[in-house]
Amino acid sequence: MGLELEDVRVTYPDGDRRLTALAGVTLRVAPGELVSVLGPSGSGKSSLLAVAGLLLTPDGGRVRIGGVEAAGLRGGARDRLRRERIGFVFQQANLLPSLTALDQLLLSAHIRGESVRSARGRAERLLERVGLAARRDRRPHQLSGGERQRVGIARALLGRPRVLLLDEPTSALDHERGVDVVELIRAVTAEHGVASLLVTHDQAHARRADRAVVLRDGGLC
């Protein structure tokens, strides 16, 4: 009931022909499991994340998020499934510059239609869990790169997602801070029972996952 991708195919137009980004990828990530995806640039990692995150509709195959089949969903229904069952952690944290660390989390609640007041306690506990209780009123430009990623992780977890998608969250960090972030991801994956898919270029980080898969030329190997 975590993340299930079955024979997923994605192609892009490239002049007169179509370029294959994912060639029948099948991958299952169980609740509480952290799976890392390694692969060179252009191997299809971003397409895999986009399909798993319902940001891209595959040409074929099936995608199930927490047991819900996403293939037939369109527009608003996909948005709803994404906000209710998927958490994203982005490469550059992608925090909104006008929001404090606490507001970044509360925004996630507001988008889901949850009362900001009722979500506040949970958001504060999550910030405390990622070690940023004292920095909750800081804006992104007042936080370090590692702190921004920790806020991003807490934001992704606020909505109690079934699936956590992490798009190279350590690429902008030095190795030591990168290790800290991956360890945090490992810990919260287990604590929250979420199915986590970590895309990374760093083999050392990838080895810290429960399982590592390699994507090459659109296929897992």
Binding site: G76, R83, E84, I86, F88, N94, I111
Partner: peptide
């Protein structure tokens, strides 16, 4: 626009 793309990725609809 990049910030809005993030908000959309977090699940916000166009109407939001």
């Amino acid at each position: 626009t990049p910030d809005l793309a993030v908000v959309r990725a977090l699940g916000a609809g166009r109407a939001y």
